[in-house]
């Protein structure tokens, strides 16, 4: 097991390295710089600013200097917010993004599992087709469409819910969480339906039914545990996707999380901030995939034995 984990970690490192390098050179090729403003900056002042942030060095030296800092966990100072380090800004936005991701995941699970189980009970009937068609729509509908639609209906026409903010007005967390969660709800619905269908045709379910157990106990006590394994395997990548993919939702609803810093950093040409968020988010995705691989390996007894055999 240990060796398996080690190999996967070693495989992840080059991925992150490529991400850093590509991002570093790409952001520099965009027109305009961090210190360009509407009121033109005196050339001498601009030079001083560039010197304070090492932008006066040749590009390759900046690159290696950045790698050096990064190796020590230092993502550098933010250009847009002098006096704040990128690390600091990232960690101030992370709790918000994580909270949003968590709510979205819960919504996705509740809606997804309910719909999936419901559909699996009577396959190929209306009870199956309706939730599965809705799930298909959910998968196809991007959040930049769903978000404004929900805003229009619940925020403006019905005027039930606040349409922006995070923790400013009661209820303002609902729409973003639903928007972000719905696509994942759709995936989870399909996964749980498939998982349940497979389990429900197993012998032990027939035995349970033969014992005369009521149907709901068959489902909740026996079928659900096995039927949801594919969903559990999906949770790791799903949560990483929720964190990294929240930038659209955070921008629509003006939520001060990581994603919004990411988008604004690009507009501000805040080089260190762009790099910092990219590196951080890509590391998260790699990490969660790694974790879910390990859990999947652990849950699958055949794989588990193989690894235990290998490491002993």
């Amino acid at each position: 097991m240990l060796r398996f984990m080690l190999i996967r970690i070693l495989q992840a490192l080059p991925v992150i390295f490529v991400v850093i390098t590509a991002t570093f050179f790409l952001v520099r090729s965009a027109p305009g710089g961090p210190f360009d403003q509407e009121k033109v900056v005196i050339p001498e002042v601009k030079k001083a600013l560039e010197a304070q942030y090492r932008l006066d060095l040749p590009l390759h030296e900046q690159y290696f200097a950045y790698l050096g800092d990064l190796a020590q966990g230092d993502l550098g100072p933010s250009f847009k917010y002098p006096g704040r380090s990128v690390n600091e800004i990232l960690f101030s936005g992370l709790p918000v993004t994580a909270e949003l991701g968590l709510y979205a995941l819960i919504i996705a699970l509740v809606i997804g599992v309910t719909a999936g189980v419901f559909a699996s009970l009577k396959p190929n009937t209306v009870q199956d087709y309706v939730p599965m068609s809705l799930a298909m729509i959910g998968i196809c509908m991007p959040s930049f469409l769903l978000g404004p639609l929900l805003v229009l209906v619940f925020g403006i026409w019905l005027d039930w819910l606040p349409i922006t903010g995070w923790g400013d007005i009661p209820g303002d967390k609902i729409l973003p969480a639903v928007t972000l969660g719905s696509a994942y709800a759709a995936y989870i619905a399909r996964l749980s339906r498939a998982g349940m269908l497979e389990i429900l045709s197993q012998d032990y379910i027939r035995t349970a039914r033969a014992k005369g157990l009521p149907e709901w106990r068959v489902v909740t006590q026996h079928a659900l545990r096995g039927g949801l394994i594919p969903v559990i395997a999906f949770l790791g990548p799903a949560f990483a996707g929720l964190l990294a993919g929240s930038f659209v939702v955070e921008t629509i609803f003006q939520i001060p999380g990581l994603g919004r810093f990411y988008v604004q950093a690009a507009f501000n040409r805040d080089y260190t901030m762009i790099l910092g968020t990219t590196v951080f988010l890509s590391s998260l995705i790699v990490f969660f995939n790694l974790v879910s691989d390990i859990i999947a390996a652990w849950l699958n007894p055949r794989l588990r034995h193989q690894f235990q055999g290998g490491s002993s």
Binding site: Y103, G167, I174
Partner: peptide, 15 residues
């Protein structure tokens, strides 16, 4: 846990 989280989500600075 779910219901606690939901009420957290619904809470703002109001009240």
């Amino acid at each position: 846990v779910l219901s606690v989280l939901f009420s957290l989500m619904l809470s703002g600075c109001g009240g």
